Each structure stands twice: as C-alpha cells, then as structure tokens.
Amino acid sequence: MISAMPTLTNVRFVRTSRNWRSQPPGRRCISTLLPPRTPAFVFDIDGVLLRGETVLEPTRNAFRILHGENPFNRKIPYIFLTNGGGVSEETRCLNLSRQLGFDIPINRYIQSHTILKSIAHRFHDKHVLVLGGRGNTLKSVAHSYGFRKVYNPLDILAWNHAIYPFIDLTEEEKMMHGTHQDLSKVKFHAILVFHDPRNWGLDIQVMCDILRGNGFLAEPTSIHSATDVEVIFCNPDLLWKNEWEGPRLGQGGFRKAWEGVWSHLKMGQNDPVITQLGKPTRETYSFAADVLREVSDELDVKLTFGSSDDVGTLGRSSSNIYMIGDNPESDIAGANLAGWNSVLVHTGVYDPRHRPSLPESKRPTLEAKDVEEAVRLVIHEEIKFTR
C-alpha cells in the first residue's frame, strides 16, 4: 500500500560550518557513513515544478540543493522529461529559465516530441501531417528536426474549406496556410501527433480522410489498406494538471476520441501502423537515459542502471536514477519499466486521498508531498544505501 512507502517525515538536512548531515531519528551522522554515491534526477514539470504558469513554492529550494547545497558538496545531475510540448526546445528552455531564475541548457530538456529528431531521417523526402500546437509553430519545429515536407490541418483547410466547413479561417490564417499545391495529389506517409490538437473535430476529420485514402485526401473510390501510413502519438497522457482544480484532458484523450470515430469509419480497412511515444514508453525512457548519461558525464557522476524486475518487488532498484513525477500512469510506470527508482509527489495529478493504493506496475519507490521533499528524501536514501 502507498501508505507504507517511506516518506520524509522526521528527516531533515542541517547545514553546519563544515558539512551537511542527515538526521533521521536514531541514525548516525553522515561523517560515520561510507562515501555515498551521487543520485541523478529526471524531473517531470507540470504538477511537479509548475502548475500552469505558476512555479510551485518548493521548486526553487529543490534546485538550490541540486546546484550544490547538499551533503555531497557538488552539483547533482538532472534533466527534465515532460509529456508536454508544442514549441521548440529553445523556447521552452527560455521560458523555464525565466520562471525558475537560472539558465537551463537545451540539452537537459526533453519534450514529448523531442525523440522525433531520431526518426526524421526516415521521412526526409516524404510528406507528413503534423498535429497540435498553435499556427505554424510545430511545422517550424518539425523542419528543425529534419522533416522537410510538412503540412498541418490548417494548411489543408485553407486549400479546401469544404473538408471541414465548421471553421472559418481569418484572412491572416488564409495567407499563412494557403498553398497553390493540389493537396489531393499529395501522398502522406505519416501523421505525427506532436502535441495536443487545438481542434479535435478538424484533426480527426483530416486524419480519417488520409487513412481512408491510404495517404491521400481524396475520397477513396474503393477500400484501401491503411497499413503503409504510420501514425505516431507523442503523449499518451489522458490527463494533466494546470491551475484548474481538476485534471484536464490531454493527448491521450484525443487518441481515444479518434479511435472511436475511426472504428466506425474504416469499413473493413486495416488499422494504420500506430507508434506510441512519450512517458511511460521504453523508447522515451531509453532516449532520456542517453541524455542523462551525457549530463552525468559532464559532472563526473556514474550512472547505475537497475533491473525492471527489481522495482516494485524489492521496493527499490539498484539504480541511482530517480524519476520525480506526479502521474503514476506515465512517470512512475515508465521508471519501473526502465529499472529506475521513482518518487511520486502529491502536487499534481495523483491525490492519495482519492486513490489510496496503486497496482505494482505503477507503484513508486518513494513518495513525498512536494519536489523539495522528494529531493531531500532521495539524498537520504542514497546515503543510507551506501552504508
């Protein structure tokens, strides 16, 4: 049961003139312990560090600890891993740097769609449809990743308003998204759901048209197989947390809505090739591990990768990597699959008052009320682990 998980109750770090020490009840001072190994952190953002645009109060204290005010007297490696997105990594880093009050290098920030950089070469000369974001923002991001022939649903709507007559584009949007190309003759090889779509109706309509036409927008004259059109979703989250009291529907909700419509329209056609990325998928956590390894090498911290068989069964993994998240479905489940440890905080999606227990696959190693407590608890656990 979650209530039996270790928490930070009665554990605090005390700064002295010489060092810090961990003072849980009845424990020895850190100076009598073996040299502890340094942990490495992977942080979710929404519901952990921020709630909407608001920085949660414990966040800045947590990063003071990571930047050197800790028992190791050194910088502790960390990266950000979010199922959010919608803009470039440069833009996101600038915004988060402004909010947190220190510079965040771009190599530490992984959005849900950052991993698409690694597959862009497969679609170098092929047409792709990009969903999500505002205006042409994600088209620009896709171009920066290496995709060359990129369209979004507003481009298609500007080409032929009849495809979804319930939206009227402004004159500015017509200028921005207009094309002289006959899009009915364009073969789309992939539909990339980068971020949460802004208009589910338009995007579901265009997706279904392309899939029923085996990559073409024109209404099919016969039933085609849709197996050569790849559909990639970057974020499986059904829910996410902002300033609103209750969780909001995310990209996972959009996928469920599209699947419901598609099941009634496909008329015996094969389903497309569907790839799900984002937390908790192995692909995303493997990508994050490579990024974290680079950051840790810069700080001369050695990473230890545990076994997924250990997590949940033994209570903790031998890994010194900790995922700090608020969503058991994505953050914690993914960490367990990767063989990492995890800390579930209570400032976001998960509320222990409403869900007092979790299945083993989504059960965290530790639990804390907020991110500062999570960081302090991890440091205490790593010190204890090396005794």
Rank of each mutant, 00 (worst) to 15 (best):
M1Y: 07
L8P: 07
N10S: 13
W20Y: 15
P24I: 02
P25K: 00
R27P: 05
R28A: 11
I30G: 03
T32Y: 11
T32D: 03
L34S: 06
F41M: 15
D44M: 13
D46R: 11
D46Q: 09
V48C: 14
P58I: 05
N61Q: 14
A62T: 03
R64D: 13
R64N: 15
H67R: 14
N70P: 08
N70W: 12
R74V: 10
K75V: 13
Y78F: 15
Y78S: 04
T82I: 10
G84A: 11
G84I: 00
V87N: 06
T91H: 14
R92H: 11
S112D: 08
T114C: 07
L116M: 11
S118E: 01
R122D: 00
R122T: 00
D125R: 06
D125H: 03
K126N: 01
H127S: 14
L129A: 01
R134Q: 14
T137G: 10
L138H: 09
S140K: 11
S140A: 15
A142T: 01
Y145I: 09
N152T: 02
I163H: 12
L169W: 04
L169F: 04
T170H: 10
T170K: 10
E172K: 01
E173K: 10
E173S: 00
M175Q: 05
D182G: 05
L183Q: 11
L183I: 08
H189R: 05
A190I: 06
I191H: 07
D196P: 04
R198D: 08
W200Y: 12
L202R: 04
D203G: 07
M207G: 00
C208S: 15
N214I: 00
N214H: 06
A218V: 15
E219T: 14
P220A: 15
S225L: 13
T227I: 10
D228G: 06
E230F: 01
F233D: 04
P236E: 02
P236A: 07
D237S: 09
L238I: 15
L239E: 07
W240L: 06
E243F: 10
G246Q: 14
P247R: 10
P247G: 12
G250N: 05
G252H: 12
G253T: 11
F254V: 07
W258N: 00
E259V: 14
G260M: 10
G260Y: 12
G260S: 08
S263H: 04
H264R: 13
K266Y: 10
D271K: 08
P272D: 09
I274S: 10
T275Q: 09
G278A: 12
T281F: 08
T284R: 09
A288T: 04
L292D: 00
R293F: 05
D297C: 15
L299S: 02
L303Y: 02
L303T: 01
G306H: 07
G312W: 08
R316S: 05
S318R: 12
N320F: 02
M323I: 13
M323G: 05
I324T: 06
I324D: 02
P328Q: 03
I332Q: 04
A333R: 05
L337W: 07
L337A: 11
G339Q: 03
N341F: 08
S342D: 11
L344Q: 09
V349Y: 01
D351S: 14
P356I: 07
S361N: 01
K362M: 14
R363G: 12
E373T: 01
R376A: 01
L377Q: 02
V378C: 04
R387M: 08
